[in-house]
Write a protein that binds this DNA or RNA. Sequence first.
DNA 1: ACATGAGCCTGTGGGC
DNA 2: TGCCCACAGGCTCATG
Length: 272
Amino acid sequence: MPELPEVQNFANALNKSYAGLKIKEIKFHRENLRYPFEKKELSEIFALGNKFIRCYREGKQLVLETSQGSVNVSLGMSGSFKPIHSSKLQEKHQHVSLFFENGDAVAYVDPRRFGFWKVKKENDPVNFICDPLIQKDLEDLFLTEQVSSKNCSIKDLLMDQKLIGGIGNIYALEALYLAKISPLKLCSKVTNKEWKQLSFEIPKILRKAIELGGSSVATYLSLNGTKGSFQDLHQVYGRTGENCLKKGCKGVIQRIVQKGRSSWLCPFCQKD
DNA sequence: ACATGAGCCTGTGGGC
DNA sequence: TGCCCACAGGCTCATG
């Protein structure tokens, strides 16, 4: 589900609601998500009396930081957080509950269970080269030999989390549309001018999406239960058969399958 | 060393 | 109404 803007939204909201609170306890409602829960370690991190210091984003993951250690949380395709009001299970796919001493509580909900909670080790390296909110970092990365010599499509490159932390299917396709580059174009054929344009469009679109509360496709809701509105500004994602929105372009948005996932593009204004 | 495709899960929506 | 298929904001393996 969530790409950078949606994850950033959860980080902001969790901070606003819970940063600084004393923890009461953590409860697990099953044994695993994508991986088995490290219950012992996680219970120590979220033990009675510890302080929930803050939540921040690292690529597409959240980091929950307490006075006794930190945890990486991946939301997978369908993970989300939701405030709860009692110790009874409240949501159908509620897998973790976190209680605070002041009576507040929040649940981790994830129907498809592709997410994970993983204890963050002291010297775990950050697992990507570049954060896509920073135009200069993107440009520097794009103009390296390592990238331009890659034998993959530009869409695959944008979604490679080892290189760039945070871009997924929606924002890769939207940014490529804005930069007028086909998602099929090979990295080796992308011009310096196009790389520069792309490093301009990516932070711009991500910041706009954060501002609008992310994209609510299917069932995504923010912590306070509201929908984002960036989906209303999607230019290609999910718009099969609709007209290209570029002024004067007579193109029709086309859906193709790329490495097993949907891509959308305007075959007229996006060239490969 | 790379690039691809299957698999992990549940839910939803469309076609018949 | 129900059944079947395709598909969904991600990521990790096994394979070639």
